[in-house]
């Protein structure tokens, strides 16, 4: 895995390099500023597989650098790990919103680094395998990104969206108080499988991006975090204090989606029919595994789908 680590503290970089080498990550490049990192990216032939960025750096901080890297098409999906001390808690939300995939804490904790980079290494290997299949699978078949129904399609261009893995990591970073003040809302596209089968992976992924856009528009709060979990399931994290009526939100969402009707008519596909589940608050029993609220929110949305009367009418179109 080819890693680029950016930190303005040379002492930290030396210790970090020693730790990464010991853990088997030998292909690591170290630079001490955001400007240097961007300069390197513009001149690199073989792209990096992963970035590790310090949050607090002079001139361009790690969050700004994260945004800059995400704006480079080649690095839209590349894992970005923020490296920070605990006092940076306030910046972690911004980092995830800027496109970070995960975060590491300073001072160096070898076990934590090994665990978190291990997960990302697996992800990178999987993506490289997919890329290899695309490159050797024939241009016609793989002319556009090909997703399976269960895949988590990137939603990068929709405001407030983050990768599902990043959403899970974000939940794990919350302390007890912040976790208890968070709730998850699930959304389920009832006719997702049908849309996938009739329209194919490419159009299906565009339809899911449309749905994400509508969800983002309907949730006016700026602190929302929306993620696509695959299989027509979305989940959104909100502050617990925000009032939310699932029925009302569902109606607003369906009106918003209906505005895409003429486009779908031209494509001869059905409108996505979306159900919204009641919110799931993080309770004490979730603290050991806070990501369970995401699963429960999705289950709620799927349960709500059973009571969704508009579905059969849509299917008859």
């Amino acid at each position: 895995m080819k890693i680029l680590a950016v930190d303005d503290d040379p002492d930290f970089l030396t210790l970090f390099e020693s730790t990464l080498t010991r853990l088997g990550y030998a292909n690591v490049t170290f630079v001490t500023s955001g400007a240097e990192a961007l300069e390197l990216l513009s001149n690199t032939q073989v792209p990096f597989d992963c970035f590790i960025l310090d949050i607090q750096m002079p001139e361009m901080n790690g969050i700004e650098l994260c945004e800059e890297i995400r704006a480079i098409p080649e690095y839209e999906e590349t894992p970005i790990v923020m490296n920070t001390i605990l006092a940076d808690r306030a910046h972690i939300d911004q980092a995830f919103a800027a496109g970070a995939t995960d975060y590491l804490t300073k001072p160096i904790d070898e076990i934590e680094i090994n665990t978190r980079l291990g997960v990302l290494h697996t992800l990178v290997r999987e993506r490289l395998r997919t890329q290899h299949a695309i490159n050797h699978g024939g241009a016609d078949v793989f002319a556009t990104p090909s997703y399976r129904f269960a895949d988590q399609i990137p939603m990068r261009r929709v405001a407030g969206t983050i990768e599902y893995l990043a959403l899970e990591n974000y939940l794990k970073t919350l302390g007890v108080f912040r976790a208890l003040s968070t709730k998850a809302v699930g959304f389920h596209v009832l006719n997702g499988q049908q849309l996938f089968d009739e329209a194919g992976p490419s159009i299906f992924s565009e339809v899911m991006i449309d749905v994400a856009t509508c969800i983002s528009d309907c949730l006016k709060t700026s602190s929302r975090m929306i993620s696509y979990a695959g299989k027509g399931d979305f989940v959104c994290l909100l502050s617990r204090v925000e009032a939310l009526d699932a029925f009302e939100l569902g109606d607003t969402l369906r009106i918003s989606i209906a505005e895409f009707g003429h486009i779908y008519d031209e494509l001869n596909i059905h409108l996505p029919m979306v159900s919204v589940g009641p919110a799931v608050g993080c309770k004490a029993l979730h603290m050991a595994a806070p990501t369970r609220i995401l699963d429960e929110a999705i289950l709620n949305a799927r349960s709500a789908a059973r009571h969704f009367t508009g579905f059969s009418q849509s299917m008859d179109r």
């Binding site: 503290d9 300073k106 001072p107």
Partner: peptide, 19 residues
């Protein structure tokens, strides 16, 4: 900024209280 740089490496170098 100076506190940040100190906190980032002091514990790894054996100065936990300072960190």
């Amino acid at each position: 900024g100076r506190a940040h740089k100190t906190a980032g490496v002091a514990p790894t170098l054996g100065f936990e209280d300072l960190g």
